[in-house]
Design a protein around this nucleic acid. Sequence first.
DNA 1: CTACACAATATGAACGTTCATATTCGATCC
DNA 2: GGATCGAATATGAACGTTCATATTGTGTAG
Lengths: 337, 337
Amino acid sequence: MPAGRARGVSIEDVARAAGVSRQTVSNALRAPHRLRAETLDRVTALIEEMGYRPDQSASSLRSGTRRVLAYTTPETDPANPNALMSGFLEALVSAAGATGYRILLVRPRPGQEVVRALEEVIAARTADAFLLSDVVEGDPRVSFLSETGFPFAVFGRTGPELPQAWVDVDSAQAMIDVVGLLSERGHRRLAFLGMSAELPWLRHRTEGFRTGVRRFKLVAHEATADEPEEAVDVARTLLRRQPRPSALVLVDDWLAPSAYAAAQAEGLAVGVDLAITGFNDMPYARLLQPPLTTVRLPLRRLADALVSRLLQLIEEQVAPEAGLLLPAEPIVRASLP
Amino acid sequence: MPAGRARGVSIEDVARAAGVSRQTVSNALRAPHRLRAETLDRVTALIEEMGYRPDQSASSLRSGTRRVLAYTTPETDPANPNALMSGFLEALVSAAGATGYRILLVRPRPGQEVVRALEEVIAARTADAFLLSDVVEGDPRVSFLSETGFPFAVFGRTGPELPQAWVDVDSAQAMIDVVGLLSERGHRRLAFLGMSAELPWLRHRTEGFRTGVRRFKLVAHEATADEPEEAVDVARTLLRRQPRPSALVLVDDWLAPSAYAAAQAEGLAVGVDLAITGFNDMPYARLLQPPLTTVRLPLRRLADALVSRLLQLIEEQVAPEAGLLLPAEPIVRASLP
DNA sequence: CTACACAATATGAACGTTCATATTCGATCC
DNA sequence: GGATCGAATATGAACGTTCATATTGTGTAG
C-alpha cells in the first residue's frame, strides 16, 4: 500500500480526484449552497464514493468546535432510586445524534473532585458544552461552570430561580394529575408514601401531591421511608388507618415493590381493594402484578429541549430563555381500579 | 484581554514561562523520565499553576490516537430485560477513565444502518476502538469490524469460537452454583422459568441450569414465558405440579415480579414455602419483598478486562488471547430459605 | 466593448500538538 | 585537554482541516 494512504481518505485526495480545491470539498459538506449545482453533484458523488469524512480532530482543531456534549453522570449509588436513568441517556444520545453531536460521558476519577473533572474537559477542549443532571442545592458544578462562563444546561432544577438554562419535568403538576385521576374514580381517602431525602424532585412531587389533595378536597395521610423493608412497615401502618385509605400514592416507583408487599400483608388486593400509583415508569413498573400505574417522564422531549438549548448556547452564543417545564403523562395500569 | 489568550493556555505559553521548548513541556507530561528532575519539577509546577492541558484535538491530529472508546449501545427495547445496563456503562466509564480514555456513545440515527454509524466513526477518526455488547449470532457489526480490521472487543459471545477479543460472564457456571446452593439447602424438586428468545446469554443460563440439575441429581421441570402476565400463569402451572417443587429458578430477574405474584396466587410464601432465584441483580431485585436471591455480574471486572483488551489492541497492536470468562457471584437474599 | 458587481472557486496560513531529527550539555576516557 | 558518548533539550515539519482572503468566472449595465 502506498505510504500516504495509511491514515485514510483526506480532503486533499477528494479535491484532487474532483479537480477542485480543498475548500470546495469542504464547502460541499459545510456550505453546499456556495457551490454550483453541477460542481456540488460531482464533489458529493466523489465524497460518497471515496468514503470521505472530515477528520474530526483536524476539524475541531481548526474550527474550535468539537461537536461533543459532555454529560456528567451523577455518582450512582445503587440504592439511589434515581440511579443513572438509562432511558434518559438513550434519549440524549438520539437527540444529540440527530444534530450531529456526540455524547461523551464524564465522571471524576476515584478521589478526584467533580469540578476537577469538568476543568479537565474544558482545558483539554474536549467538549463544547456540559449537560448536568441530578443537581442539588448549591451544586458545585453549577457554581463552577457559571463562574467559568462555559456553556451548560441542567436537567432538573434546584431553587426556583436558577439563572441557567434548565429543563425539568413538571412533577408537581403530574402529581396533581394523579390525584385528580384518583379523585375522579371516587377515591376520597389517600395515603402518601414519600422519602425523607431533601432532593428537589422529591420535594416537587410531594408538594404536588399536597396541592392535589387540597384542590380535590380529599383527605390524606403521609409518611416517609428510605429503605425497602422500612417502607413495607410504614406502608402497612398507613394502610391500617381507620377509615382505611383506598389509594396509596408513592413518591417514586422505587417504593412500589414494598407497597405491594404491604398490601398483601394487610390482605388487600392491589388494583381491587387498593389503588397504588408510582412515579417514573421504571422498567419494572409494568412487570409488577398488577402492573403499576405511574407517571412517565417525557424523556425524548426533555433530551430534545436540553440539546437545543445547548446548541443555542454554543452556536449562537445567545442565552436561551432560562427554564422549561415539560408535562409528564400518567400511565394508567391495572394497579388503579 | 490579549487576543492570543482567547483559546486558552497552550504548550507554547507554558514553554515560554518555563524557559524551555515546547517539546520539553510535552515530555513533562508524556515521558517525564526524559527530563532532569529539576526541570521536571519546574515545568510540572508551571503546568499545574497555569492549568495547562494538551488540546485533545491537536494531540489527536498529530499523534493519530484519540483516547476515545466508542460504545455501541444496543437498540433498547424497553421490554427487553437486558435493556442498556446502566451498571455496566458506569463500570465502563470508570475503567476507561482510569487509563485516560473516554467513552463515546454511538448509535445509528433513525433509519441508518448500524454499520454505517460505525463506518462514520472510523472514517472521521473519532475513536480508537469499538466496544460492542449484546452481540447476536451473525451480528453485522462483528463481521464489518473484522473485515475492516478496526480494533474492537465484545462484551458477550455468540458462537463458541468467536475469533475476536471477547469477555463474558460464565453464566453457565453461575447457574450451576445456584442449583448447588439449592441442593445444599435440601431442595430436590426444582422448577425453571426461562424465556423463549434465542439469545446467547439465555442459552448459557438455561444450559447451566440443566447441567446443575444433572450434577446434583435433582428433578426439574421447565417452561418459558415472554410477557409478564404470561409468566404469572406459566409459573403457577409449574408450582401446581405434584409433588410441588420447592424452588423456582428464573432465567432472569425480569421474571421475578411475575414469579412472586404466582407464588402469592398459589398461597405460597416466598422465602418460606418456596425459594425463588433470579439472575442479573437488577436494581429492583433487592426491592422485592422478600429480597430476591440472584446472581450479580462482575461488572467492574468485565469492564476492566474489556478496556485492557482494547488498549492492547490499540497501543500494542497485539491480538490479545481470544476470550475471557469471568465468574459471577450468587447473592443470597431472603427469597432463598 | 469595457467596467463592474457578485458568484464561484482557489490559495496560503493557522489551529496546537507530537514526530523526527538536530543540537547542546556534561561527564568519562585516554 | 581533546575526543567520545549518552543524556537532556531544542528545532522544523507535519497532522488535516477551516479561516481569511485572493483570484477567477459570469452576467449586466452603461
